[in-house]
Write a protein that binds this DNA or RNA. Structure first.
Lengths: 342, 342
DNA sequence: AACGCATATTTAATCGTTTAAACATACACA
DNA sequence: TGTGTATGTTTAAACGATTAAATATGCGTT
């Protein structure tokens, strides 16, 4: 059995009417358009019999709306993004939209390509977890009047819609928690990134230290490059160990940093929390499963994702929707890795 | 600055020619179609000036090909699927295709919805990581002559194209490895699933035991339900512990089972590998980061993914392509969790 | 001058759907 | 008989691209 797709024309022919009537009936406009009762019933019956499925591509061309949103992230194989993707997918589907996910590895060039492909595919809007140096792309979208909302990261100087975690407070809380538990020499491993969310994770830490009268030792703050992550993190920890004023607690500013840091700490046969107490950003089973479960700042992924979809779709429906900027609080999940200093 | 999208008509008007010529030039058919040199140059120039981007939706409608493939998986937030998705995405993009990923939580109904949405969106083909009870859907696709390839799991009675791991051998090797390292009482925790890949993981284990003259204790083989996973795994381990002939080594048939199993083992303050040696399927940082790194069967995700795309696109280009069925070998990654029995 | 041929360009149909506008028919009422 | 109104249905253009077929023009040959 082959099977050409059934179109509205086939139904029209079989029913002996014009395609207009079929369209009216299929879309439930038969009342408004005054389609005859028997004809309507006949059309519905035939559509069912032939298992008619509307061609979304034709609809999209005609209507100018594809009911599709593009989700631009760094890497779908990273659990943080994968979790976001899942939330966005579910919420979008609930509202009749399909999501196209694209990974750009934090590379501006890949992101450009990706965005262009998606624009050509006429996505109705974008949810973007932005990378460094993507201001230009964002500005481009705005110029072309394509709806988008930034998720998790934003550029304060661009004044766009965004939905993100309050990273300053999260980092402040993480550090404060360690201080409360008796640690005073606290190191922070972050990325060297010219991005607001990372900067806030740094200033939050600094502010918490200051506010608790702890002199900031600049050596305690290490910013590593994205490339060669594993080595960079190892060097950072090596350096900590060599210091006179060696940190007794570490904050990892992302999940990826924590993974690499903990791996190296294991390799050195150091113990958490005795050699280093630990608090991390990000979330994954791993933090529960580590021999010493890791305290972390739980970002409200579910809320972030659904809110982003909501904000975007409002924008899609009405481009004049006023700017929406949402900050959500992270929650401290206390575990053994940061327990009260002995 | 607003910005209506630039179409081929706009270029044609500006150049004072018909849309046909513009189309020829844009698509590089100017030689074949004998477009005048100066005109061609002019068209190209104008296209550039106006930053023309072809409307992929219109192209799709006209050509009947969307250059899109649907990837149907259980859950994008599961690292196994996320990794597959990444490989598929990259390979597809390399070949000019876009991927739409859909999660169906191993539910036949969700999978149906998803597949229908994607069919309506005219995807050119599907890569499907099938769930239980999805034979009907698969058969449906075949009847409608829509190209697809099964990935990671397949239904032997359906005789479709597929690309999968040789699970029998993988499981055999996992078990054999434990036996070689001195363990003889070996438990297997698997899903109760009517699916080939799971069955093979069971028979592989059984075969390895038999071949090494180890009497199979049926209590050592536990099949748990997908629902209430955490509890079910805990019960299974409780049961093991109560047995006279308690297993000294465990094989987890999936990543999810391992996560839950290891969490519970931690909770009971049992030690790997002394209380239980462990080998698992799946892969993730976690297996390296656990206090006792976990031995696992590394599935060749990269190869599986790229091959699946290759097979599918061959099918898309020519529906008469002969059946392609590929089995790939998993590789044992030996770590401390299965070291030689003391 | 007539024809053939090569070159260059336009016309118009097509993909599947939506929808404003035109058309047709019946009936009520003056 | 004509006019108005309600009801039911068709026509045809449009979305943006592709492409077979038609057309136009110039040139060389006889």
């Amino acid at each position: 059995m082959s099977s050409k797709r059934v179109s509205i024309k086939d139904i029209a022919k079989e029913a002996g009417v014009s395609t207009a009537l079929v369209s009216y009936v299929i879309n439930g406009n038969e009342k408004e358009k005054r389609v005859g009762k028997e004809i309507a019933a006949k059309i519905r019956e035939i559509a069912k019999k032939l298992n008619y499925q509307p061609n979304q591509v034709a609809k999209s061309l005609r209507s100018g709306s594809t009911k599709t949103i593009g989700l631009v992230i760094a890497d779908i194989s990273n659990p943080f993004f994968a979790n976001i993707a899942r939330v966005v997918e579910d919420e979008a589907r609930r509202k009749g939209y399909t999501v196209i996910i694209g990974s750009c590895d934090e590379k501006a060039e890949k992101a450009w390509d990706l965005i262009n492909v998606l624009i050509n595919r006429q996505v109705d809007g974008f949810i973007i977890v932005a990378s460094e140096h993507s201001e230009e792309q964002i500005a481009h979208l705005r110029e072309r009047n394509i709806p988008f909302v930034l998720l998790d990261r934003h550029f304060p100087e661009l004044n766009t819609d965004f939905v993100a975690t309050d990273n300053f407070t999260a980092s402040f809380d993480a550090c404060k928690h360690l201080i409360d538990n008796g640690y005073r020499k606290i190191g922070l491993i972050a990325y060297r990134l010219d991005m607001q969310h990372m900067k806030e994770r740094i200033t939050g830490y600094q502010e918490a230290m200051k506010e608790n009268q702890i002199a900031l030792n600049p050596q305690w703050l290490v910013e590593v490059e994205f490339e060669n992550l594993q080595q960079e993190v190892a060097y950072a920890i090596d350096d900590f160990l060599k210091m006179e004023d060696k940190p007794e607690a570490l904050i990892f500013a992302t999940y990826g940093l924590a993974i690499n840091g903990l791996r190296y700490i294991n390799e050195l046969q150091l113990k958490v929390p005795d050699d280093f107490a630990v608090v991390s950003f990000g979330q994954a089973e791993i933090f529960e499963l580590y021999y010493c479960p890791i305290t972390y700042m739980l970002q409200p992924l579910e809320d972030l994702g659904t809110k982003a979809v909501e904000v975007l779709l409002a924008k899609v429906k009405n481009k004049e929707t006023p700017l929406t900027q949402v900050l959500m609080k992270a929650r401290l999940i206390e575990q053994k890795s940061s327990e009260m200093k002995k």
